[in-house]
Design a protein around this nucleic acid. Structure first.
Lengths: 169, 169
DNA sequence: ATGTATGCAAACCATTTGCAATGAC
DNA sequence: GTCATTGCAAATGGTTTGCATACAT
């Protein structure tokens, strides 16, 4: 995947943010940013920590949490809390807006490209509120669990019928 | 507020759910439901616990968590995790669909009546996914914080100007 | 040289869990 | 009478915090 250009852009954006807010430009911070923009999709703190530990640059959990806070603040990362106890994070720059389909049965999270549910025109209607980003979570039952549930119900129906017949005797 | 009719409806719905799933109809469960539908807006576990403690019916935290799980499952309550570490909950029945505006600066959550960003027609497009409900979270800066921020920036600019003048000397 | 940022380990705290006692069925 | 449910207290685990050390400025 050739995303060196993307990485340069986010690095520049991060540098701007750090300088503007008088934060230090430490190698740890850039290493975290680089690592996050090396993979797609959602990640959680623990996996990021382990993944970086195995790479050339290890950082402490404390630093990870500190850095994520900065990345959230400057809009390079987005945070999600879908319902499990762990927070999930996601690249925000160069990542097309999408909704999240969350299965209430198995917990799987799928991305759903939707584009413009929330159009700029609609954003304008929100007077007196400066929108940074938005998250759309759609909860329900995924196709896999739906099939499993249907199969289950069919089975139960058969059993019920059997019981009815037994009772009739 | 006359919501005795509403309470009867949700009570009936809860009873249906409990019977269908062969769960017991304990007084604790109905007390929790009743308490939740006695107030509007968001609440968290701790406030619910304390509020019920002061009322005539006290339940343990364990039971509270158990019962909320049931209420979530039968769709009478919705759970939100806006970013803080505590989950927030909300009545779902008779509660018009609305988005949530969350201020990244002060954490305040405001409801935003929107109606139908997510229309039934759009839901149909989600093949192979049975939608139960959805949550729209719009993050940004609220008007209060926006004003504060502007004031702050104005102040900094004045200081910068002063510094420039000093340097020029 | 100064003081912010890091790493470590301990603390925190919402939520979950184990288990004996209770009470819905 | 049976077994799901309750209440209590202890355990869990993601996240935060305090503090000594390191290092960006």
């Amino acid at each position: 995947m050739d995303n060196s250009k993307l990485k340069d852009q986010v690095k520049a954006k991060f540098t701007d943010y750090l300088e503007l807010n008088k934060h230090r430009k430490t190698p740890e911070r850039y290493a975290v940013l680089d690592h996050i923009y090396s993979t797609r999709g959602h990640f959680e703190m623990d996996s990021l920590y382990n993944s970086m530990k195995q790479s050339s640059f290890r950082v402490s959990r404390a630093t990870l949490y500190n850095t994520i806070e900065l990345l959230l603040d400057c809009g390079l990362v987005v945070k999600h809390q879908f319902g499990a106890n762990v927070s999930q994070y996601e690249r925000a720059y160069g990542n097309e807006n999408h909704d999240h389909l969350i299965c209430l049965s198995c917990g799987e999270v799928k991305e759903h490209k939707n584009g413009n549910l929330f159009t700029p025109a609609q954003q304008k209607k929100l007077q007196r509120f400066k929108v940074s980003y938005y998250s759309m979570y759609i909860y329900g039952i995924c196709s896999k669990c739906l099939r499993a549930k249907n199969a289950e119900e069919k089975k139960n129906k058969v059993i019920e019928n059997k019981n009815t017949r037994i009772k009739k005797k």
